[in-house]
Computed example of a mutant assay.
Amino acid sequence: MTALLTARDVCQRLREAALGVLMFNRSETPADTGLVAVDIEGWRLLLDFEGGRLHHCEQCRCPDGREWQFNSRYGTDPVNLLSTWELAQIENLLKL
């Protein structure tokens, strides 16, 4: 059985993108969903981004196939682990 990703694994990719260490590419998604697909060097994330604010990470899949899913009742959201500056950097990347 393959181990699942943790919120910290996903947060680390977001941090590295915020710092410019990893390439951050936004994919085109329907605007009415409020969800934005991004690729961070093979890590595919679906982010809840609406009104210029990043609310949470919905899901993530890394290149080796491991996954992380948002659970509003249990667990930690990777976005909540970001510093204020890191969150602002990711929001700026999402606005571009």
Rank of each mutant, 00 (worst) to 15 (best):
E41V: 12
F49D: 00
A7F: 08
E28L: 12
V10Y: 01
T2K: 15
S27T: 14
E58C: 06
R44F: 07
S83E: 12
L82P: 00
G34C: 06
E50C: 14
L19Q: 14
R26I: 04
L45G: 02
L45H: 05
T84N: 14
P78G: 02
T76I: 10
P78I: 05
R73G: 13
P63N: 11
S83T: 15
L96G: 15
I40A: 01
F24Q: 04
R73K: 14
D48S: 15
Q12M: 12
P63T: 10
W68Q: 01
G42R: 13
E58S: 10
L4H: 13
E28P: 01
F49K: 00
M23A: 14
P78C: 02
C57R: 02
R26H: 08
V36Q: 07
D77W: 11
D48V: 15
F24E: 01
L22K: 14
E50K: 15
Q59E: 08
E41R: 10
L93E: 03
L5W: 01
E16N: 10
M1G: 13
G20E: 08
Q12A: 11
L93G: 00
L96M: 12
A88S: 15
R66I: 01
A37C: 05
E28G: 11
P63Q: 10
G52K: 04
L47F: 06
C11N: 06
T29F: 03
R8L: 11
R61S: 06
Q59G: 04
S83Q: 11
V10Q: 00
L93S: 00
W85K: 13
C11Q: 08
E41C: 09
V38D: 03
P30G: 09
E67R: 09
A7M: 09
G34F: 05
S83F: 09
A7P: 05
D39N: 14
C62V: 07
N92M: 09
I90T: 05
R8P: 04
L47E: 01
G20S: 04
R15Y: 00
R26M: 05
H56G: 06
G75H: 08
E86Y: 06
I40K: 00
Q89L: 08
S27M: 15
L87R: 08
F70Q: 01
V36R: 07
Q69V: 08
N80A: 13
F70Y: 15
S27V: 14
G52C: 05
D32E: 13
C62H: 11
T84C: 13
N71P: 03
E67M: 05
P30Y: 09
R61C: 02
H56R: 07
E41D: 12
G20H: 09
D39F: 07
T33F: 09
N71K: 10
D9A: 07
T33S: 12
E58Y: 11
A7S: 12
F24W: 07
Q69Y: 13
A7D: 00
F24L: 06
D48R: 15
C11Y: 03
N80E: 13
F49V: 05
N92K: 11
V38E: 02
G75Y: 11
E67W: 06
G65H: 04
L5A: 06
L93D: 03
I90K: 02
T76Q: 09
S27N: 15
S27K: 14
L81M: 11
R73Y: 14
S72P: 06
C62L: 07
G42E: 07
A18R: 02
Q12P: 02
L4V: 06
V10W: 01
D77L: 08
W85N: 14
C62W: 03
L46G: 06
F49N: 00
P78Q: 01
E58R: 12
N25H: 14
T6I: 07
